[in-house]
Amino acid sequence: MNDSLPEEIALRTETDIIVVRKSVREAATRLGFGITDVTRIITAASELARNVFLYAGSGVVRCRVLNGSDRVGLELIVEDHGPGIVDIDQAMQPGYTSGGGLGFGLPGAKRLMDEMEIESVVGKGTKITIKKWRKGT
C-alpha cells in the first residue's frame, strides 16, 4: 500500500500547491485516514507549501508512509532553500507574519498535525517535518 507514493513534489509555481494537495489527499486516503484527518493533513500541507512560495520562492515536498510497530502514519517534509526563519518561537505565534502571510500557517499546521519539527538556518533554508498518526487499529 505504500509503494506508489510520489517521492518528491517540486514546488515551483502556485499551481504546484494543487499537486501537493492532490497527492497528499490520495496518500492519506489510501492509508485509511478518516475524512476529517485527511482534510487536516491536506490543509496543513497547503499552508506549508504556500509558505514556501511566500518566503522562499521554490522548494520540495516529500511524502512518506510511517510504519511504526503498532501504528501507521504519514510524514510530509517540506523543504526550501529560502531565507530561513530568524526566530522560530516568534514564527509559531498565531498572527505573527514576517511578510505577506496571515500568520496562521505554522501554528495552524502544528495544531492540525500530531507532530511538527522545524529546522531552519538563516540564509540557507527551512525544513519542516509534519506527521499524522492514524487513529484506531
Binding site: 476529517t36 487536516r40 490543509t43 498565531p94 496562521f104 495544531r111
Partner: peptide, 14 residues
C-alpha cells in the same frame, strides 16, 4: 461548509 472543513478551519485558528 463541510463538517471536516469546519473542524479544520477552526483548529487552524481562522
Amino acid at each position: 461548509i463541510r463538517p471536516s472543513v469546519a473542524i479544520t478551519l477552526t483548529q487552524l485558528g481562522l
